[in-house]
Nucleic acid binder design. Structure first.
Lengths: 345, 345
DNA sequence: TTTATTTACGCAATCGTTGCCGATAACGTG
DNA sequence: CACGTTATCGGCAACGATTGCGTAAATAAA
């Protein structure tokens, strides 16, 4: 099964011209007479000619495609990010090739191999939870592949990056719980490898300290796979309830952790917020429909995707290597709903 | 900024061989001595050689990439589908290029242009809600581009297709409402252009008729943009409540319609299911956490994506044009939760 | 020893496009 | 008339990899 498209040769043959002339006529070169140009253009139209991007890629050594690596597509936050990425890429005539790491370092390396071998012009990546070194990225980057980090950012590689103010998001969420009267606030967070985990965790801790509350390590649970595996979340939540002093609120630091946590609380028959309050990072657009309506920290995912892609394309299309790298930080937004209703005590 | 990869020429030069010999050695041709092969292989390893897929594409007239057109990525159902698509494509060494139609016919045509010009080897498409003819697809299909429909299937084009038994899903959902004691069951559905809408609507109607209940046209509301635009859903729901006989249950036929409907009911201050029951198609994985826990018809989205991609790749890689087309129909699953609790009357 | 066969490799064309150079004709200039 | 200029166009090579064909050398067969 082949798909035969008309080439510049077909036009040349039809008009008795050379391919060079046709090529130039199509690119509106000054060397070609208006008459010939018109002929060529008409013929191209008639034969429905489309330049072959593959041939162009080969010649120009660029593919006009960018690679995107995320842990999962089926995740509100990332699908919204991809939406933003796709919108800019589309505007600028670029393909988006998507790969999922499924939170596996090994798979991430395979993804990069794959994307590099497909000659992507640039890379947008939110690293997997297992990733704690930059070796695999560095080798590509050193060979000249533009890379932009988004969401999960790795130190040790000089590139652009786009994220949110994780500290602020976490601080405000925790502060909100404190101000709502909660005294024993636990935190469910991702792998310690991830920059975002640590920033959010720090925000949580700082908020507690600001209000003269203790940071209890027992109240901090790490879920290595960040909610991708439900049983892990369930176990972490259960651990929180083995404490002598049971927490009266939980702050969760990612989308799947938040929903996973809520699910576990439901299964344990706990009432939110009566028995325990819940505030979490989430980009679900039905947070208000949850039981109870969820207080969430929402990230501007679409804008993050757009910003990251703009930075990447700017770098790809830059004539000179870029030395000055930008770290763009957007603001998360706290939306207060019922899951953190002020405590009655 | 360029990304220089090692080519077959570099190996040839390094070893004092011709490119043909290197090429053949790498492909383990019988014409090359074991000795030379070993040299070449070692050198390729050392220089970290990766064949340039663009050059291969140009020569073999295939790009090893497939195009996917959906209305929206940021939608549970479609992101799960894409997950399935990506999994098969990755296994088989294909790229996935994603385009969104945003439910616009015009945008869909542009997407197809774009994908065709990027020389995709095949196309997976769930048409936009505005699409009601096959002209744009037919011209590509006639020129030999393999196409597989999924979810939303268009008549008038002989291709493979993958969907669910929409009739059954809708029938069972409606039947469940009937058996739960609901008497005035309304239906919120998508554009009449879409095959899935009609099949689901028919399932709804047939269920009513089977139980000797009237089909009231006033109880059927079409949302042209299928929930993509919230205000449309809100308006449709509000219309249902202007009836003299207000409905006591709503059946919604797609993911965003279901959540949009629930959101509207919340805003109107209606209790579900006490004031009105709700059952809908949805692939949200937090349906059980909604208020109330939602009774849903869930489609095996991941499997649909996998099946569609397998059919497409089979067609792409087939030597002879395929004459016999398959319509693969998977089974949706009804999960009963609280939003359709038996009526107390 | 001569001829046939095998082994192992190189040359060149090809995919579609463009850049560089060269060619040709018409025309103007001194 | 000789030469330079300009306008228009064609030929060739190259991007990276594959492949049909040709061929030299080595080996086997006659």
């Amino acid at each position: 099964m082949k798909f035969e498209a008309t080439t510049i040769k077909d036009i040349a043959k039809a008009l008795g011209l050379s391919t060079s002339t046709v090529s130039r006529a199509l690119r509106d070169s000054y060397e070609i007479s208006e008459e010939t140009k018109k002929l060529v253009l008409e013929c191209a139209e008639k034969l429905n000619y489309r330049p072959n991007p593959i041939a162009l890629s080969l010649k120009e050594r660029r593919s006009r495609s960018i690679g995107v690596v995320v842990c999962e597509i089926a995740n509100n936050f990332f699908s919204q990010i991809i939406n933003g990425i796709e919108s800019v890429a589309y505007e600028r005539g670029y393909n988006v090739i998507i790969a999922q790491s499924h939170e596996s370092y090994e798979r991430e390396i395979m993804d990069l191999q794959f994307l590099a071998s497909r000659s992507v012009d640039g890379l947008l990546i939110s690293v997997s939870t297992e990733t704690n070194d930059t070796a695999h990225l560095k080798s590509l980057h050193d060979r000249g592949l533009p890379i932009v980090f988004f969401d999960r950012i790795l130190e040790g590689l000089e590139t652009h990056s786009v994220g949110v103010d994780n500290f602020k998001g976490a601080y405000e969420a925790t502060e909100h719980l404190i101000k709502s009267g909660y005294k024993r606030i636990a935190c469910l967070t991702n792998s310690e490898y991830l920059s975002i985990s640590n920033e959010r965790l720090t925000g949580y801790k700082e908020a507690l300290l600001s209000y003269k509350m203790n940071v209890k390590e027992n109240y901090i649970q790490h879920c290595f796979y960040g909610g991708m595996i439900f049983s892990e979340v369930e176990e972490a939540v259960n651990k929180l309830f083995t404490q002598k002093q049971k927490p009266d609120a939980i702050f969760t630091t990612s989308d799947k952790l938040t929903t996973g946590c809520l699910k576990t609380l439901h299964r344990r028959g706990l009432k939110v917020p009566a028995d325990i309050a819940l505030v979490g990072f989430s980009n679900s657009d039905i947070a208000e429909l949850l039981h109870p309506a969820l207080t969430v920290v929402r990230q501007p995912a679409y804008e993050m995707g757009r910003a990251a892609t703009e930075l990447l394309l700017q770098q790809i299309e830059s004539k000179r290597p870029i030395k000055q790298f930008e770290k763009r930080v957007l603001l998360p937004e706290l939306t207060i709903r019922h899951s953190s209703t002020p405590k009655i005590s």
